[in-house]
Amino acid sequence: MRILSAGDEFVGTDLLQAAVRAELAGTGVDPEFRELSLPWPIEPFGPVAEVNEASGTEEQVIEALDGAEVAVTQMAPFTGKVFEAAPNLKLVSVCRGGPVNVDLAAATEAGVAVTFAPGRNAAAAAEFAVGLLLAAMRRISTSSAELLAGTWRGDYYAYPNAGVELEGTTVGLVGYGAIGARVAKVLLAFGAKVLVADPYADRAAVEAAGAELVELDELMRRSFAVSLHARLTEETRNLIDAEKLALLPHGAVLVNSARGGLLDYSPLPEMLRSGRLGAVALDVYDVEPPPADWALRDAPNVIATPHLAGASKQTADRAAAIVAAEVGRYVRGEALANVANPDVLTR
């Protein structure tokens, strides 16, 4: 069986191949690998033709496929043009939480099943979000940067400038999927009171975990800290805008390690300068990387990291294992676990 392993600098080609070989051991199928190495994350992803967040070109993928029946990847663009040029292709297994690098309509038309890897980075992203929250509430990152720059900020110990503990603080989580639920669990262990806003969350499950399910406006009014964990859709784009930010208590903390498009960034600089927002911790942006004249560069109490929330070695290992497991199911004739275009199964 010919398989394209289109890896990158995070989930590498070798890692994908090793996982697939391990999964197919004992099946009698000897994979013949075609290889494509992509430059992400050294080079940022971006749109390719009609798909979003891809790395590499359509021409590279078409050449690398060369009659492959299966493809495993994280970032390679699978567009209508690619599917049209790859008549032997039957399965594309994407090791991401959503296959945004695949044209699902074109895949379905071509009879290609597309799978994805939900939860592969849930632990890493949840830990990172809590880390950002702690860093912002206790001034860990800003005070460290100032000390290394030669400034000893003893005034941070003065009562008006002192940080705020998680214990006893109300934290609002916008989104309660695999990551949001993990964040809630950790915050509750710290002794925080956790509010959740998610129209798709199961109330009984939220309450059983020890959190409270509320409407978004109520969450914004009651939460001293808010962390975003929703998926980016047309429904959630700019979900947290100036109107929603104005509902927050004075001096509140905002964390976004989910998707840049969830948040309207334009009100943040002035809200930080006025003290209306106490701190902002960001791992994702409306434009990545932020431009040189990015307004938040000069705003106070900003923590900014370069889209690292999911970047753990375990995430890469887990992602490769998940896509390999789908290849194993395909080879054995079993039902695929996470199909993004289920209509293809009836074709």
Rank of each mutant, 00 (worst) to 15 (best):
E207W: 08
G310W: 11
G210F: 00
P87N: 13
M75G: 10
E215R: 10
A126I: 04
P306I: 09
T305W: 03
H307T: 04
A325I: 00
I3S: 12
T315K: 11
L15W: 09
R153K: 15
E35Q: 15
R329A: 09
R153T: 15
E326R: 02
P342V: 06
R120Q: 07
R203T: 07
P289T: 03
V61T: 15
A54C: 05
K90A: 13
D293P: 07
P306N: 10
A211Q: 14
L248P: 05
C95E: 04
S266L: 07
L38T: 02
T305I: 00
A225D: 08
L38V: 05
T27G: 03
A19F: 05
L15S: 11
P87A: 14
K81H: 14
R139S: 12
S266D: 09
V92S: 13
V114W: 05
E270P: 08
F116S: 13
L308K: 07
R182M: 04
L132P: 02
V323M: 08
L4H: 15
A252P: 11
R153I: 05
V284L: 00
T115L: 06
T79A: 13
V94F: 08
A178E: 09
A6E: 04
L91M: 11
A162N: 07
E53L: 12
G28E: 06
G46V: 01
K313S: 12
A184Q: 11
A197H: 01
I140Y: 05
A325L: 07
P291Y: 04
A136Y: 10
E165C: 06
S274N: 06
L166E: 13
D317Y: 11
G28T: 05
A110V: 09
L263C: 09
S93Y: 10
E243L: 02
D30W: 02
G111E: 06
T151A: 10
G26D: 10
A145N: 13
A123G: 01
T13I: 07
R231W: 02
G131M: 07
E69H: 15
T73E: 00
V61L: 05
S55L: 01
I3Q: 14
A299L: 06
E58W: 06
I322A: 14
Q17A: 07
D286R: 02
R329K: 09
V344Q: 06
G333Y: 03
E59D: 15
R276N: 08
S274A: 11
Q60T: 14
N338D: 09
G111N: 13
A184G: 12
P291T: 14
F33D: 02
L15M: 14
P289D: 07
A192H: 10
V284G: 03
V72A: 12
L15H: 13
R329I: 03
V112H: 11
M75Q: 12
G310P: 08
G168A: 00
